[in-house]
């Protein structure tokens, strides 16, 4: 299937997504920094009463903590963003790309209709998906439009 069609039809839930790290809004900044750094995540989701409430990204740490020299004892609620774009895992990859590119969001939380957290999708997940679906071409790029590799494996 060609790529554009694939992106328009593949639901987000088919991607091998990592589970998000979920915190509460009173988690201190010192802990957030370690969760982001050690968990190898670009963002954390903030939950309140079982529902998605906010998001803390690497960018928030850079802009609000390092530059403004905010105390590490302050809670997540001080630096989190609460106006979030969300997606449902049944929506398709093209929708996810649209939300990311139009809003400049690198991570988009996945929620159900009641706003309960189901997961998270990142721009990197999309790049991985596209890259993985074109391994032969991506590894062995032929030099001209009118040429192709003799075997699947290329040279």
């Amino acid at each position: 299937m060609e790529l554009t069609k694939r992106l328009r039809e593949e639901p987000i839930r088919h991607l091998p997504l990592s589970a998000p790290i979920v915190i509460s809004e009173d988690t201190p900044i010192s802990k957030l920094t370690h969760l982001l750094a050690d968990g190898n995540r670009g963002c954390l989701l903030v939950e309140k009463n079982g529902y998605l409430h906010g998001l803390v990204s690497e960018r928030d740490i850079l802009c609000k903590v390092i530059e403004k020299k905010l105390s590490e004892d302050e809670p997540a609620s001080v630096i989190m963003s609460t106006e979030l774009k969300t997606l449902n895992p049944d929506e398709t990859l093209d929708k996810a790309i649209k939300v990311m590119t139009s809003g400049g969001h690198r991570h988009v939380p996945l929620v159900d209709v009641d706003r309960r957290i189901l997961g998270i999708i990142s721009a990197k997940n999309i790049i991985d998906y596209i890259s993985e679906h074109f391994p032969a071409e991506v590894f062995n790029l032929p030099p001209r439009l009118d040429q192709k590799m003799a075997t699947k494996e290329g040279a």
């Binding site: 060609e2 790529l3 554009t4 069609k5 596209i130 074109f134 071409e137 991506v138 790029l141 032929p142 030099p143 001209r144 439009l145 009118d146 040429q147 192709k148 590799m149 003799a150 075997t151 040279a155």
Partner: peptide
Amino acid sequence: GMDLQDLDLEPDRPTSTLHASILY
């Protein structure tokens, strides 16, 4: 030093612009 001998084959143009874009 890449071996290019096997590359001169029949045209097989990708159908999607996006696909072609990623390749070329």
